[in-house]
Simulated scan of single mutants.
Amino acid sequence: MSLGLKYKNDEKIIEERIVNGVPYLVYPMLEQTGVVKHGFTTRLGGVSKGYCATMNISTTRGDDPRDVEENKRRLAEAIGVRPEDMTFTHQTHTVNVAVVEEEDRGKRFMETDGMVTNVPGICLVTFYADCVPLYLVDPVRKVIGLSHSGWRGTVNRMGRVTLEKMHEVYGTDPGDVVAAIGPSICQDCYEVSEDVILEFQKDFRKEDWDDLYYRKENGKYQLNLWRANEIIFQEAGVKKEHIAVTNVCTHCNPEILFSHRTTGDKRGNLSALLALK
């Protein structure tokens, strides 16, 4: 059964799945590692009401806590994890990456936009409504990372910072890592002002600028966060053939995915989930 998502191209990068009435998205490339369970939520399949309808597990959107708990239960059952193992970030557009140990199971990390762990069963959870989810799986050392990267996180190379933390703590070799850039706002939908572009010009090579943005007649720019994060991964040592770049835009799919550009603060959050088996 198709969810009716609009894709930017016909590549089979993402697979739609519905389990017990809960739709979510998966990356076959991550599944093929054989070491993780993962998913990316839609706004469907839950019990939340109003502007959070229906699948929202974020506690920062003004949602009914009872609905959030029921949604967590449904989502955990669909993906194959336990609600009590879900471990969360409270994101503030930093490049702070937490190391999640056994005693952190179920915790919320404040002022944190990324997490890494080697503990089986702990389910890392991060939140989105246009920003970029970054999934990282090291099938050799059995280590995972999950990070949130908006334009600020991207300029500050959140993907590289997360990889460096995996290497520092667990010995991960970036050449072994399989990475996915998750559903987020596409270049066609992401208009930014010149001050944002100036930040990218300072931090990215000039030869990459044409891939990253173009200027419009109104003086604004269209920015490609998908390509920017792919460049960051490759420069950090992840092999191009090990990177799955999304072809699903949050803003292009307002009936299925939450988007800040579409509805502002009147929305729930999408969730990325990643756990070692």
Results as ranks from 00 to 15, higher is better:
Ala98Glu: 04
Pro65Val: 08
Lys49Leu: 13
Asp67Thr: 09
Thr112Lys: 00
Val36Tyr: 03
Thr94Trp: 05
Gly114Arg: 01
Ser48Met: 11
Glu69Leu: 15
Gly62Tyr: 09
Val116Cys: 09
Cys123Asn: 03
Val100Asn: 02
Ala53Gln: 14
Arg141Asn: 14
Asp64Pro: 07
Glu31Tyr: 01
Ala78Leu: 07
Gln32Cys: 01
Gly45Lys: 11
Ser147Phe: 00
Leu134Ala: 04
Ala98Val: 01
Gly45Pro: 08
Val35Glu: 08
Val143Lys: 02
Glu84Ser: 13
Val143Asp: 03
Gly34Asp: 07
Phe40Asn: 09
Phe88Trp: 07
Val140Glu: 13
Ala98Gly: 06
Pro120Gln: 04
Arg73Val: 12
Thr126Trp: 00
Asp130Asn: 13
Tyr128Leu: 14
Phe109Lys: 00
His38Cys: 10
Thr87Cys: 10
Glu101Ser: 09
Val100Met: 03
Lys37Tyr: 03
Asn71Tyr: 10
Val137Ile: 11
Leu134Gln: 05
Asp67Cys: 11
Gly145Ile: 00
Arg73Cys: 09
Arg152Glu: 12
Arg152Tyr: 04
Val100Asp: 00
Glu102Gln: 11
Val95Pro: 00
Met115His: 04
Gly46Val: 10
Arg74Lys: 15
Ser48Lys: 05
Asn71Phe: 09
Glu69Phe: 06
Tyr128Pro: 02
Thr92Arg: 12
Val68Trp: 04
Thr87Arg: 03
Pro83Ile: 05
Val35Ser: 09
Asp104Cys: 02
Cys52Arg: 14
Lys107Arg: 15
Arg82Pro: 01
Lys72Pro: 06
Arg74Tyr: 08
Glu77Pro: 03
Asn118Phe: 00
Gly34Arg: 04
Val143Ile: 01
Ile144Phe: 01
Val81Gly: 13
Gly80Thr: 08
Pro65Ser: 12
Ser147Met: 02
Arg43Pro: 01
His38Glu: 10
Val68Ala: 07
Gly46Tyr: 08
Gly62Asn: 11
Glu84Asp: 14
Ser48Phe: 01
Val99Lys: 04
Gln32Leu: 12
Gly80Val: 05
Asp85Cys: 09
Thr60Met: 12
Val137His: 07
Gly114His: 04
Lys142Gln: 12
Trp151Met: 09
Thr33Tyr: 06
Val132Cys: 14
Thr117Ser: 14
Met115Leu: 13
Gly145Asn: 02
Val116Leu: 08
Gln32Ile: 00
Tyr51Ser: 08
Val47Ser: 12
Glu102Ala: 13
Leu124Tyr: 05
Ala78Trp: 06
Val81Cys: 15
Cys131Ala: 15
Met55Trp: 09
Leu124Cys: 10
Ser58Thr: 08
Arg105Ala: 07
